[in-house]
């Protein structure tokens, strides 16, 4: 098991347009860290820098006590699973699995042994003679993972490996990957834009936005205490309500909404998770329902009152009509406060 350290990683292709800025990250031996962020946030670039496919403009990549920044990809002892699987289309599954071992000039018998073992652990035994074009998406994904594990690398890199699969299969494979990691306990960096994967797979998640780390932490910590307004909006589904307003004398105002307990004066952003908003009464005054999405297990409601807009996540059995007025209540301990300019989390007094 190896540790992985990224120290001051910076990457830019043109002056004043950095793709990554000052990324520092330490991944403990055997840990699975998920890098999550929206498209274009630089997460794949970061993964490719770790793999050695891209050279950083500044900063270092360390695996164990070895700086590998200037090493070629093949010399870093990392394995990567690509979004499109990157299986060699002209090779059979067996040859795809054996390719990294042949490059390493392992004896034939060892290669056969390790290919068989990988195939067994991933349930690929019956597919060894097939070409990638004869496989389903899930099978291709397994082969791609197999090609990574067969090398027994120090670090695993996953670049959105499940994003080409349908929702059901994605769920299944997510579980399989989690199980695989538990079994192999190889240090892993996993890139995804899917927060469900991030929340379920990683022991820690790194939220990236516009090339900067927004927050690093255990998934539930990040969910419960988002460090920035961006993280608050990004992590959680449906996303957190972010209401912009002004605090005066400890009272936050947004349209008819007035909430006591604001941690600072001036422009602020109030964050409330939809599931933490409680309906106190129906009819009368309050938020007017503008849209209702009944999902069966829950009902999402969009409501507004003057400039204040709110999304509520109610129980599946709740029936709400458009136009209906709802009086709501938000527990004080469920409020998140962010600076109006900086977007950084403010702790309530």
């Amino acid at each position: 098991m190896a540790t992985l350290s990224l120290r001051g990683i910076h990457k830019s292709y043109a002056a004043n347009a950095p793709v990554l800025e000052g990324i520092d990250l330490d991944v403990a031996a055997g840990e699975l860290v998920v890098i999550v962020g929206p498209s274009g946030c630089g997460k794949s670039t970061l993964l490719r820098i770790v793999a050695g496919l891209i050279q950083p403009s500044a900063g270092e990549v360390w695996i164990d006590d070895r700086c590998v920044t200037d090493r070629r990809p093949g010399e870093r002892d990392v394995a990567m699973v690509f979004q499109n699987y990157a299986l060699y289309p002209h090779m059979t599954v067996a040859r795809n699995l054996a390719f990294p071992l042949r490059n390493a000039r392992l004896p034939r018998a060892r290669i056969a042994e390790r290919v068989a073992a990988a195939a067994r652990s991933l349930g690929l035994e019956g597919l060894l003679d097939r070409k990638p074009s004869q496989l389903s998406g899930g099978q291709m994904q397994r082969v791609a993972v197999g090609r990574a594990i067969v090398r027994e690398p120090k670090v695993f890199l996953f670049d959105e490996p499940l994003s080409n699969l349908d929702t059901k299969l994605r769920g299944e494979l997510r579980t399989e990957l989690a199980e695989l990691h538990r079994r192999l306990a190889i240090t892993t960096l996993y890139v995804t834009h899917d927060q469900a994967e991030a929340m379920t797979l990683g022991s820690r998640i790194v939220v990236l936005h516009e090339g900067r780390v927004q927050q690093i932490g255990a998934p539930l910590d990040v969910f419960a205490r988002p460090a920035t307004r961006f993280v608050a909006g990004f992590i959680g589904s449906p996303p957190m309500n972010l209401i912009e307003g002004v605090a005066e004398g400890g009272v936050f105002h947004c349209g008819p909404l007035a909430l006591a307990g604001a941690p600072a004066e001036g422009p602020l952003v109030l964050g409330v998770r939809p599931e933490h908003v409680r309906v106190v009464s129906r009819g009368g005054t309050g938020f007017a329902v503008r849209a209702v999405e009944a999902h069966g297990n829950r009902t999402l409601v969009n409501a507004e009152s003057g400039a204040a807009r709110l999304r509520l996540c109610l129980g599946g059995e709740v029936r709400v009509k458009v136009g209906e007025r709802l009086a709501v209540e938000i527990p004080q301990d469920r409020l998140h406060w962010f600076g109006g300019g900086s977007g950084l989390r403010l702790e309530s007094g």
């Binding site: 793999a51 010399e75 394995a79 990567m80 499109n84 990157a86 060699y88 390719f99």
Partner: peptide, 17 residues
């Protein structure tokens, strides 16, 4: 597909291979 070449680089294949 450029990822195939990238995959091969990570898989330790030199320029000729």
């Amino acid at each position: 597909d450029p990822t195939l070449e990238e995959a091969a680089r990570i898989d330790g294949a030199g320029p000729w291979r």
